[in-house]
Design a protein around this nucleic acid. Structure first.
Lengths: 196, 196, 196, 196
DNA sequence: AATGAATGAGTCTTCATTCAT
DNA sequence: TATGAATGAAGACTCATTCAT
């Protein structure tokens, strides 16, 4: 009994992940509104009805995907929040952020491609991320002030804009030709160099 | 007769612009796929059928909007392409770019919100813009080299990423609370200062 | 302009009535839940989509039908409610009620067949009819008391039960073979005779 | 072995009854077409698949329920069919009928709520009940004739209509507030008094 | 030029039923 | 016996597009 139940849960878990993974890819590349359940089912190799065994609706599937991504981000960034950053810590923070993105380039690119879609942005605004971002902005503001920057908030703005722009660039050019791996490294060092 | 015809064309022109303007706003905020012709007609104060007097289809309307935006960009940037930039010319180039964006903040924000949507990106890739951007990249590369930057292509990348990131930030935060006007100016000077 | 608008409204009105009429017939004979929009469309000689030009949903169509019936009933019975009934008035009340049912036997049989369906009953309970029925019960109670009946409320109950049962009988046997016209008359006189 | 088999059959029998009981309740209150197998399974505390171990299909389950009800009715009324009714026998017949309904008010109300649904009526028409009812009509006709009623068939009609109307009334008002128990008794005596 | 009734293909969703375990 | 994952046909509903007026 416990055996059967365990297997069921395993199967459910796998299927759920599989559906979410396929959906993220399609939603990101085609746009949420342009992906039909039929298309999703074909790409996931399942029947049309099965999705509804795992998610209440198409929108609920979207929500699950977005929330999972937000959770991943929060888990990654929710450590060492004592609030004071040294130059070394700043460098480490930037490097580990890029490392995270690089390791799951496909996932994060797709995720980014998803959350910039109209109506989906709203999910973010109502999530914990808003607070998380604000607190990081504060920490960075203090750091830049301590480092002697004239206009710390402008630097915070510049840095975050740069990182978002980088993500957007990856999204745009990844379809055509991959961005050279080396660029990751050089770009990252360029940022660290500017701010330490 | 010629008079009547002229007035006729004038009216057509105005209607067309009005439809395109409303459509851009809706496509950008709701997402192309989520805007129905019925909704568009209501917001434009016309009947559903009338749209088809001006555009062959919904997609043709989209195309017209995107092409108009691309044309505007090309017209703005297609001057002084002798190819060699002085520091002063660079500063002027950055300033006039920001000025253009600032003056039509609403239009460009909407336009940006439109072209980052999946499937619509493709329009850009097949447009003249690709070549235009490439040529600007070349000019900037030469400029950065002349200015003694170690890795000119990285700087080009950084600059373009920054500007795209800025546009994205405007798109995201414009709904909630306007970005302070002053930031435009400070951000722009920050870029000029870095690269001159 | 006013002309066109008028014609539009005329067409809309006719179509709406036509759809409601076909829907009532099908809902009553097949059961609301078993009638598909496709089936309804075929029987009404229209396309599947057109129904949604006139009603928001299948349920909204149902609601319109039920409410129309309730309104008809209320209009028929909402006259002379001074509250005191003579034997003559009672006889007239019964006769005119039967006359109304007889004249639109098809409509009322279908309507009755609709409102006894599960879930649809609820519509009635929340309608004005509840109050109307209650007030008629009161009036009849007084009448039976004045006529010297031992247990007036029991008579009210008996009478209403009899009429409802008559409606149900019509619904059941109308499919197979029509109830003989004469029965209407004899049944009606039987009731009048019992209670005057 | 025979023991195990017996227990086996006992369990099967119980399960079957349980499923039928839950199904009758749901079919009656929600309408046959609106009850899904999933819903049924949840309310019966079994899995979706298990139902198919006991019944071939949803319709076959419905059929079993209706047939069981018809059987119960036939068993109750199939006695003393010598054909001639005295006044005393008539009174006893009415009383025992009401007693039967009263004792299993919930069951019969639900059953009645089921068989008046469109499409389900057909089951009755093709069942033995049609003949049974006809024969009772005959017996009652003779009885009323012997009792000196002017229009015996009208009385048969009136009586059956009254009883059906009573059942319908119970179905309608049972959800809201129970019909006072005393009414059963008084209503029954009222009928007996009229016809003896 | 302008309207909106009408169409029907396509979308999301439900659900009776099957089957491997 | 019992489970629930999986299927696919069918249902409610949407919407780009056409066309008579």
């Amino acid at each position: 009994m416990a055996d059967r139940e365990k297997r069921h849960l395993e199967i459910r878990g796998k299927r759920k992940k599989q559906i979410m993974s396929v959906a993220l890819r399609l939603f990101s590349s085609e746009g949420y509104g342009h992906v039909s359940i039929a298309e999703l089912a074909i790409h996931a190799g399942i029947s049309k009805g099965l999705m509804y065994n795992y998610f209440d609706s198409k929108e609920s599937l979207l929500k699950a995907i977005v929330e999972e991504g937000i959770d991943k981000i929060i888990q990654s960034f929710d450590r060492n929040r004592d609030g004071i950053l040294t130059a070394e810590e700043f460098a480490h923070f930037i490097r580990s952020t890029f490392r995270l993105m690089e390791e799951n380039k496909v996932y994060w690119t797709q995720f980014f491609g998803l959350i910039i879609q109209p109506n989906i942005k709203e999910f973010l605004k109502n999530s914990e991320m808003t607070g998380l971002i604000a607190s990081y902005f504060d920490i960075l503001g203090v750091y830049f002030k301590n480092m002697g920057f004239e206009d710390p908030m402008l630097e915070v703005f510049h840095l975050s804009v740069t990182i978002e722009g980088f993500a957007l660039m990856m999204l745009f050019y990844n379809d055509l030709a991959d961005i050279p791996e080396a660029l990751f490294k050089r770009f990252e060092e360029r940022i660290i160099h500017t701010y330490t």
